[in-house]
Amino acid sequence: MDLSFSRFEHDGRVTGLPPDLAVLMVGVTARQAASPTAMIHARLSSHVVTDTPFAPSHGAFNARVAALFTRWKGT
């Protein structure tokens, strides 16, 4: 797994993590997500979000622009 980012240095070294660490991180994440605490928390926080400016019910930040793009694309 390569966690380095591109820099403007031409002679910069690339930093990579060993594959075993990536596998370990995936395993830990899977076990944590499957824990009873995580499952209870998921059930507790699954409420319906009402229509707010940052989470509108139609799903688009600007419904008119989304409709315009949909008509323009023809889908």
Rank of each mutant, 00 (worst) to 15 (best):
residue 73 K to D: 09
residue 61 F to V: 01
residue 36 P to R: 05
residue 5 F to D: 04
residue 63 A to T: 01
residue 24 L to A: 15
residue 68 L to I: 00
residue 48 V to L: 14
residue 34 A to T: 00
residue 66 A to P: 00
residue 70 T to D: 14
residue 3 L to M: 04
residue 37 T to V: 10
residue 68 L to W: 13
residue 31 R to L: 14
residue 30 A to K: 05
residue 35 S to G: 10
residue 75 T to R: 14
residue 21 L to E: 13
residue 70 T to L: 11
residue 11 D to C: 05
residue 32 Q to D: 11
residue 10 H to Q: 04
residue 7 R to E: 10
residue 40 I to P: 01
residue 12 G to K: 03
residue 74 G to V: 02
residue 18 P to K: 04
residue 7 R to C: 08
residue 19 P to N: 07
residue 39 M to Y: 04
residue 28 V to M: 11
residue 60 A to Q: 04
residue 68 L to A: 14
residue 57 S to Q: 07
residue 1 M to K: 02
residue 41 H to Q: 10
residue 31 R to E: 14
residue 48 V to P: 01
residue 22 A to Q: 11
residue 8 F to H: 03
residue 57 S to W: 06
residue 33 A to G: 04
residue 35 S to Y: 03
residue 33 A to M: 13
residue 15 T to C: 08
residue 3 L to E: 05
residue 69 F to M: 09
residue 56 P to K: 07
residue 59 G to C: 09
residue 52 T to F: 13
residue 64 R to P: 01
residue 26 V to Q: 14
residue 25 M to T: 05
residue 32 Q to F: 09
residue 8 F to R: 01
residue 67 A to F: 05
residue 42 A to R: 09
residue 57 S to N: 06
residue 24 L to N: 06
residue 37 T to I: 07
residue 39 M to K: 12
residue 31 R to Q: 12
residue 7 R to V: 04
residue 32 Q to W: 05
residue 60 A to K: 02
residue 70 T to M: 09
residue 8 F to G: 12
residue 32 Q to S: 13
residue 74 G to P: 00
residue 20 D to A: 15
residue 74 G to N: 05
residue 20 D to W: 07
residue 16 G to R: 03
residue 58 H to F: 07
residue 16 G to L: 08
residue 18 P to R: 05
residue 74 G to E: 08
residue 33 A to D: 12
residue 69 F to H: 07
residue 67 A to Y: 04
residue 26 V to D: 15
residue 14 V to I: 09
residue 5 F to K: 03
residue 60 A to P: 00
residue 52 T to R: 11
residue 3 L to D: 08
residue 61 F to C: 03
residue 67 A to H: 05
residue 18 P to W: 07
residue 72 W to L: 13
residue 66 A to E: 12
residue 18 P to V: 01
residue 2 D to T: 01
residue 42 A to L: 07
residue 19 P to A: 14
residue 65 V to S: 15
residue 65 V to F: 10
residue 6 S to P: 00
residue 12 G to F: 08
residue 37 T to R: 14
residue 25 M to I: 06
residue 60 A to L: 02
residue 21 L to T: 03
residue 33 A to R: 13
residue 13 R to F: 10
residue 52 T to I: 05
residue 69 F to A: 12
residue 36 P to Q: 09
residue 71 R to Y: 09
residue 50 T to P: 02
residue 22 A to E: 15
residue 71 R to F: 10
residue 30 A to Y: 04
residue 18 P to N: 07
residue 34 A to Q: 12
residue 45 S to G: 06
residue 50 T to I: 04
residue 68 L to C: 06
residue 41 H to I: 07
residue 65 V to E: 15
residue 56 P to V: 02
residue 59 G to S: 08
residue 21 L to I: 04
residue 12 G to I: 00
residue 73 K to S: 11
residue 19 P to V: 03
residue 20 D to Y: 05
residue 7 R to T: 11
residue 13 R to A: 13
residue 74 G to R: 02
residue 15 T to E: 13
residue 34 A to I: 00
residue 75 T to F: 14
residue 73 K to F: 14
residue 60 A to N: 06
residue 27 G to E: 15
residue 23 V to L: 14
residue 35 S to E: 08
